[in-house]
Nucleic acid binder design. Structure first.
Lengths: 311, 311
DNA sequence: TGAGCCGATCCATGATGTGGAACAGGACTC
DNA sequence: GAGTCCTGTTCCACATCATGGATCGGCTCA
């Protein structure tokens, strides 16, 4: 933990955020103020409404809020205050308060005496239930990520697909002196942003890749205007041949990474392993070493899960 | 896992359910049809709205639904169908569908090709975030529960308080031939129902206990009409002296249990350990042995968490 | 004393979620 | 192949419900 602190003065923006969205102006202002770590940027994003007009606005808002509380409280040790949550989410305090009360009533959020809001027991339990029912991928990859982090001395990630998004499902840190902090557990980006995300795309058919990029076209131009979609397509094409993705700091300044897709027999591609670090550690011969590590673990996970196939 | 099956024909109702609530009639009818294990009964309960009129109806409904999906999908291996969920929750299909779509859009629920609805990656992640932010109690007690289950050859539980409810936060099974199936992870009951729940109450002041029973008075008469509150008060009073709760099958027929509160310095009492089994295994000298085991683990957990007190 | 923050509460407004009804598409049966 | 009985999905008029600006009480600090 203490090692983290020395990285606090990184360029958090990292060239990744260039929001033209007027809605985000307020959030941007709050960003530096509230959370010092780079995740603040991701936190802000995690709270957006997805597709509107589906007749479930309040649910989406409430779940975004739940996510947000988890991210904030997870990043720091303490809980999140009402005003913070309201500021970051960009909603009025009264609304946030009402929603939080509902979340508390359901046990998904808790608040110890005068402390901040944090996730509650129900959230914990939901995770346990999810482990049983969703798929054993996250559990299965746990030891792999630990090995990857230890052997590489960098940060290892499990990325999973949800619809047209990818989400950082797990993250393990090595004990190196440099810590890549561009991606935290729970961060969600449109498919194509991040090495793991690209690795997943490389396993989809070209038509599907097009469909994903089309679906997120607006998001891309609004939120990642500096990212060239054609460059991403190139990376994907190369990954189809090479079997791995190499991201030379495309998304966050100085954050380089390699990723490989997880191939599980009988299951659509929807997960990837990746390792991220600084440029110097993801170049030249080290790329091959990292890829070898990743491939080895990806193969192990793939085999473990393919055998116990769905009934 | 296969050992479980041989117990499927237990008396699921177990004398626990005596619902006079007219709203529940439909659910009762569905119960045996849909889920065979006793948890079906608890599933049905988990879906109730809590306090209405707080201006967050849809959130509560959506979260109940989320919980329900998790419980159903967790109980069996497969996912839950829309119609099932609609039937159990007692809401029209259209509404359930709309909510599920919202939950899917947010990644909390997933649905693989034509399969049923199950919890999604976001739920998984929420659990991870919760482990970091909520409190280390669940993680810390994991090994204790495993030891308890192994040493007792019965089923060990971690019960936690949420508001005026207690919830089964974790559960580990021994390899004995009899499996107590009256309580599953995620099951929620009003405080006072269950040995662990009573153990938590025994650490509260009499005034607080009264307040809790008052708060849940309606629930008790509606849902546990056979349970005498004065009997519960007696158990609590005895537990204050003895330091443990003994439940002689009060709630579910044949499900006896012992429980001890978890005392953590600097934290309000809100958790308990318990072991449940059949009557023959929770009587006479064995009670003391079980209590000794529980006390030992409770002490260990308490010390582990008291040292790393909140900042 | 009062400015500034915190979380909590009120309540008129209309946007929003609601759910009955109708639909499409399989899987079986007669 | 017309029948029933399941799925999951879409539509849309209705009014319930969430909304959020304004206000308040409590606390800390200058």
């Amino acid at each position: 933990m203490p090692e983290r602190e020395q990285l606090n003065d990184w360029d958090h923006n990292g060239g990744m955020y260039n929001g033209a969205d007027p809605q985000d102006e307020h959030r941007m202002k709050m960003r530096g103020k509230i959370l010092r770590r780079s995740a603040s940027f991701n936190v802000a994003h995690a709270v957006d409404d997805l597709e509107p007009g589906t007749g479930a606005q309040s649910i989406q808002r409430a779940l975004s809020l739940l996510n947000l509380v988890g991210l904030i409280a997870g990043e720091r040790g303490s809980g999140a205050s009402l005003s913070e949550i309201a500021s970051i989410s960009g909603r009025p305090k009264a609304s946030v308060h009402r929603m939080l009360q509902a979340l508390i009533a359901m046990g998904y959020v808790e608040r110890f005496e005068e402390g901040g809001y944090r996730l509650g027991v129900q959230s914990q339990i939901l995770g346990q239930l999810a482990q049983k029912s969703v798929d054993p991928l996250v559990t299965e990859s746990e030891s792999s990520l630990l090995r990857l982090a230890e052997l590489s001395q960098d940060t290892a990630f499990l990325t999973m697909r949800t619809g047209s998004y990818s989400i950082c499902a797990r993250r393990e840190e090595g004990f190196g002196e440099i810590l890549n902090n561009a991606l935290s557990v729970g961060d969600r980006h449109p498919l194509g942003i991040g090495a793991g995300s690209l690795a997943i795309l490389s396993e989809l058919s070209p038509a599907e890749v097009d469909a994903q990029f089309d679906a997120n076209a607006q998001l891309f131009t609004e939120r990642y205007p500096k990212v060239s979609v054609t460059a991403l397509r190139d990376i994907i094409d190369r990954a189809r041949v090479d079997g791995f993705v190499h991201n030379p700091g495309l998304f966050a300044q100085g954050s380089w990474a390699v990723g490989v897709p997880l191939k599980i027999r009988g299951s659509r591609p929807r997960a990837a392993l990746s390792i991220a670090s600084i440029a110097e550690r993801v170049t030249g011969p080290r790329v091959e070493r990292l890829v070898a590590l990743l491939r080895h673990e990806a193969k192990a996970i793939g085999e473990a899960l393919s055998t116990q196939a769905e009934p």
